[in-house]
Amino acid sequence: MNQGIVTVTLNAAIDKTYYMNGWSTGTVMRVDRIHAIAGGKGLNVSRVLHQLGHPEVTATGFTAGYNGQFIVRAAESEGFGTDFVSIEGESRVCLSIVDEENHTFTEVLEPGPLVTPEDEERMKSKIGDLAQKAGLIIISGSLPRGCRPELYTELIEICSSHGSEVFLDTSGAALVEGMKGKPGFIKPNEDEIKPWLNDIIVADRNTDSESDAEVSLHNYGAAIQKLAKDTGISRVIVTLGALGALACIGDTVYRVHIPRMNIVNPVGSGDSFVAGYAFAHVRNMPAMECLCYAAAAGSANALNPTAGCVVPTDFGRLLEQIKVEPWS
Rank of each mutant, 00 (worst) to 15 (best):
S86R: 15
K133M: 10
A300R: 06
I127N: 00
R30E: 11
E56F: 05
H257S: 13
L49D: 03
L246M: 09
I158K: 00
Y152F: 14
M123Q: 04
F80Y: 15
N304D: 08
I200C: 11
S140A: 12
S140F: 01
V253T: 15
E157W: 01
N198L: 13
R255D: 00
G26A: 10
I34P: 02
E56C: 04
S234D: 11
D212H: 12
A59Y: 05
A131P: 09
S46G: 08
A203E: 15
P312D: 09
C292I: 06
Y293Q: 05
F167M: 13
L136E: 04
P149I: 09
H50Q: 10
Y220D: 05
R283F: 02
E56G: 01
E214H: 15
I87F: 05
R148P: 05
D99T: 06
Q69V: 09
P259N: 00
K226W: 00
I14R: 04
L240Q: 00
A59W: 00
P195L: 02
L217V: 01
F185I: 03
F105Y: 14
T104D: 13
D230Q: 13
G178E: 09
E56R: 10
D204K: 12
C248H: 15
A75N: 03
I71W: 03
N21E: 14
I249T: 10
Y152Q: 06
A245I: 01
N265D: 08
